[in-house]
Design a binder for these strands. Structure first.
Lengths: 193, 193
DNA sequence: GCCTTACCTTAAACTAGTTTAAGATTCTTT
DNA sequence: AAAGAATCTTAAACTAGTTTAAGGTAAGGC
């Protein structure tokens, strides 16, 4: 039963009943995604909410100089969407790309609106999911404006011990907002201590 | 009718019916807040969702060196909460302080949970409110890791033209993540162009 | 297996932004 | 009105982090 991890994940919030589960099965789509495959590209409107069953994604913006700025990594049981593009139906500035071969469940916007309208439980569940994402993002911002690069790297390593092994150092550097060279320097200085 | 701006603001989402309005009147509290008065201090648990009827607030963290890092300003029709502290009932790391004399409506956590449970419309409305806040926060983070201080200042001025006159330059500097001295430098350089 | 691409490391030169310092101005409190 | 506090400005000295450069290693593709 491929949706089981998605259904199971809702148990943390308001669990789904049989009818809701069946509707979810009808209105969602499972996809296999190759490494480096995009599920959203800059300039496209984000049309789906995506749940990660297996695998890892990075969400990033490319600036005018071509530099990649990673703002989020998503792994098993995470939800992915460019919320601004999804709701306002405007072209996204962001890319979402698979860091490794992955399996996802996608709910298209009309279907998600159907759930919100007909099953208020989904409003609740997605509000809570969003709150958790908001808390993380807010902590991230706080760190970015108030801590040194080394502190941010240490936080990353202790907050996401398993994620570290799935990402390149270049991606991690981009996430904490520094260059790969500087991350190398920090890491070698720490080895010398 | 002091709750009118709050009730009116819900018209952007799902408007409230008479019963919901009455329940809101029963379960919310209007407060007058003096300039520099705190509605949340570090170490306290955030127990309310706060709606600004009139006035302006800053939400900030004080780091170990005593430096203030502003992460959000809130004005009329904005909602304020330290969401992490509110939901997990853990002491907040943040302060929320009035930048000017203000009037607010507060909903205590048990009352908000009552609304969520009995009026699913509130789940919807607060999910949408949170989405808007999330979008703003995400854009803020993106900017912080990918643009220069001057670009961030220019964005602030064009995004929040009216806010600029209600805040000191020191607060704005703290919000965009630079020192007041550097902001002064940027501003005088711009005057020379 | 070979070639290409991506990643990682190291270091010197550089710079966007900070710290230190201090004077001037504005605002608040008594 | 005077005193104190907060804010703003300016500038020199400083530094956390970047850019430029290049070599080595690992991974991916054909």
């Amino acid at each position: 039963m491929p949706l089981s991890s998605l259904i199971h994940s809702f148990k943390k919030y308001l669990p789904l009943n049989q009818e809701e589960i069946e509707e979810l099965e009808r209105r969602s789509k499972i996809r296999k995604i190759k490494r480096r495959q995009f599920i959203l590209s800059e300039g496209e409107v984000c049309k789906h909410y995506t749940f990660v069953i297996e695998g890892c994604f990075k969400m990033y913006k490319v600036d005018e100089t071509g530099k990649e700025h990673n703002i989020m990594f998503s792994v098993e049981e995470d939800w992915i969407a460019d919320i601004g593009s999804f709701h306002d139906e405007v072209p996204s500035q962001l890319h979402v790309e698979a860091v490794e071969a992955s399996t996802i469940v996608q709910i298209a916007k009309p279907d998600l609106l159907f759930f919100y309208t007909n099953y208020p439980k989904f409003d609740r569940n997605f509000r809570v999911i969003l709150e958790n994402q908001f808390i993380e993002l807010q902590n991230r911002l706080l760190q970015t404006i108030s801590t040194t690069a080394e502190e941010r790297y240490n936080s990353f390593v202790s907050d996401f011990p398993h994620l570290q092994h799935r990402l390149s150092n270049t991606q991690i550097a981009s996430y904490i907002g520094i260059t790969p060279e500087f991350l190398s320097r920090i890491r070698s200085q720490q080895l010398r201590k």
